[in-house]
């Protein structure tokens, strides 16, 4: 019989997703164009799991993105452009 793992968590699993730490540092965010050929490379290079594959497209979860620009730098099709913005305690300005 497979038993459940004998661990008592102190923090709810994955709970940082609700209050991602880095988004107030963001000064740019990625915009994905039709040039994307769904190679999915960016989904494995993003440090924050902010780019996910959904319904045959790459979707950005903006709240998780810290704006590092790795995706745009790595995209072989040049399909990702970083667009400047300010996002902080005052809100988001584009």
């Amino acid at each position: 019989m497979v038993k459940n793992l004998p661990v008592v968590p102190t923090a709810k699993a994955g709970s940082l997703v609700e209050t991602p730490t880095g988004i107030t540092w963001r000064v740019q965010y990625p915009v994905i164009s039709e040039k994307c050929n769904m190679c999915l490379d960016c989904t494995l290079f993003c440090p924050d799991g902010a780019l996910i594959q959904q319904e045959g497209k790459i979707e950005l979860i903006l709240s998780l993105c810290k704006g590092c620009g790795i995706c745009a730098n790595e995209c072989k099709e040049n399909a990702i452009q970083m667009v400047p913005e300010y996002s902080g305690v005052q809100g988001v300005f584009r």
Binding site: G14, G22, C46, D48, G49, A50, K66
Partner: peptide
């Protein structure tokens, strides 16, 4: 996504990429 979403590392952290992969 078993690790990485909402992580408290610097933007562009290589260690976070390693953890996700």
């Amino acid at each position: 996504e078993l690790f990485g979403q909402g992580n408290a590392g610097c933007g562009g952290c290589g260690a976070a990429v390693a953890g996700r992969q």
